[in-house]
Amino acid sequence: MAGQVAVGSRSGLRSALPLLLPAYLWLTVAIFLPLSAMVFFSFMTDLPLSGKAWSFTLDNYMTFFSQGLYPTLLLASLRLGLEVTLWCVVIGYPAAYVLAKVLKGRSREAIFLLVILPFWSNGLVRIFSWAMVLREGGILDTALNAALPFEINIDLMYSYPAVIIGLVHSYVPYMVLTCYLTLQAIDDSLIEAGRSLGASRLQMLKRVIVPLAMPGLVAGAALIFVPVVGSFMEPRILGGRTGTFYGTIIEDQFVAVFNWPLGAALSFILLAVVLVMLALASPVLKRAA
């Protein structure tokens, strides 16, 4: 009996192998190899190009701790990640609720399309169109001055709020989608049952709907927080001089200073910090979910 079961499971794996192989091959080639190369670089004094001499060192990692600038920028980026995630919750969760529980049929499809639209537009185009809107004499400034009886001067360009606006715009669809999926799975009869027991809408939200939608909220937050902490395009274009963050410093190492080893080391420190934060948060998140 036991032998038969073992044979059965082994043949199951064998038949699954052709299905698994392409994905693992791709992951190995596309992610594991370049990433290993980066790990390798991060312990080198210089790139092994053009015959320059190089040796192994921990200096790239020490640089992070010896210069106050890097930890400060990392903290600023973590704060940016938290703020953007929070705004995505504030904006995305109610939208997801309305999509999942209030709208039906055609109007749901139309609103859904509007939410996903940013996904389909090029990131650079999206950011530069925000620049058109936010700068002095831009679309927002002109429109507000045309509508208001008094003169105001709006110039959000090259500021922290501009970076937040750009990033929230890019990432809010993730929150809407993940929350929509979990909210939609909540049976309407649960809400009716709660109301029949005398619960107000707010009580239902707090005690049933939010707890049940928590997995979507957590997934959305993780999908947003991690890339925002490392983001560099929005900070650079919309933030200008105020837009120096951990991600832009890493980008500088690769494209401007050509100090790949330091750039790689800074990247892996970021990865480690994010992983530690997610690990620390996971018991809390698991309980909530």
Binding site: D187, S189, L190, E192, A193, G194, R207, V208, L212
Partner: peptide, 8 residues
């Protein structure tokens, strides 16, 4: 309710 509608 027919499907019990207990809060999971």
């Amino acid at each position: 309710f027919q499907n019990y509608a207990l809060f999971p």
